[in-house]
Amino acid sequence: MDLLESTVRYLQEHELTLATAESCTAGLIVSELARIPGSGQSIDCGLAVYSPQAKHRYLGVSFETIDTYGLTSEATSRELALGALDNNDADIAVANTGIAGPKPHDDIPVGTVCFAWALRHDGKTFLFVETRHFPGERNDVRLAAAHHALKQIPTYHGAVIRKEASAYDIDQDKETTS
């Protein structure tokens, strides 16, 4: 079973609804998932938010975060994911921001993508963040990033439900083991 089919199946089996907040992938995460028939029952929305103003307006990303850490940062991806989770009818939100190309920006190399996954489980919100580097041209980076975001959904959600993950419990504002 390929990545897209297995991700849809996982979302359906766990009755999860997904929202995405995508910068460098510009909606490709949700678009890739939507290629699979029946995926619509597991998708709430996909938001493509490129500009700082759109990130702030639609997802509440603070301008202070962007000014302090930059558009391509784990801090910004974190706020994107939390905004997508809080402002939509979803159990899990996936966000990314990065440099797909063609040129580096602010000394950040092409292919750098910051991700965040925000999940609700048992009345708590958990957050995972990571930064990855993908090789290739602009659209190669975008597709690899979209697939990576989807691939990690079962990993992070599974860790939370198995109580194996060390995650950030947003509601308690402290590090915790789920």
Rank of each mutant, 00 (worst) to 15 (best):
M1N: 09
D2M: 09
L4D: 06
T7E: 05
V8M: 03
L11T: 00
E13S: 05
E13H: 03
E15K: 11
E15N: 06
T20S: 06
T20N: 01
E22F: 11
S23I: 05
T25I: 11
T25W: 14
T25V: 14
T25L: 14
I29H: 00
E32D: 07
L33S: 06
A34M: 15
A34P: 08
A34W: 14
R35Y: 11
R35L: 15
I36G: 12
I36L: 12
P37I: 08
S39P: 03
G40F: 14
Q41T: 09
I43L: 07
I43Y: 14
D44K: 02
D44F: 15
C45T: 07
A48P: 04
V49P: 13
V49M: 07
Y50E: 07
H56T: 15
G60M: 10
G60L: 14
S62Y: 13
S62G: 12
F63M: 14
E64N: 05
E64F: 06
E64W: 05
T68A: 15
G70C: 01
E74F: 05
A75I: 00
T76D: 02
T76H: 03
R78N: 08
L82W: 06
L82A: 06
G83S: 02
G83N: 08
A84Y: 03
D86G: 12
N88D: 10
A90C: 13
D91S: 09
D91M: 04
D91W: 11
N96D: 12
G98T: 01
A100D: 02
A100C: 04
A100Q: 05
G101D: 04
H105K: 13
D106Q: 15
P109G: 08
V113F: 10
F115V: 02
A116C: 00
A118M: 04
G123N: 10
F126E: 00
E130T: 01
T131G: 06
F134M: 03
E137D: 01
E137L: 09
R138F: 01
R138I: 02
R138S: 08
N139K: 09
V141F: 01
L143E: 12
L143V: 10
L143P: 03
A144K: 05
A146K: 03
H147C: 01
H147W: 00
H148K: 15
A149F: 03
L150D: 00
Q152D: 11
T155Y: 10
A159E: 12
R162I: 06
K163I: 01
E164N: 13
E164P: 01
S166G: 11
S166C: 12
S166Y: 15
Y168K: 08
D169W: 00
D171F: 03
D171Q: 09
Q172T: 12
T177R: 15
T177P: 04
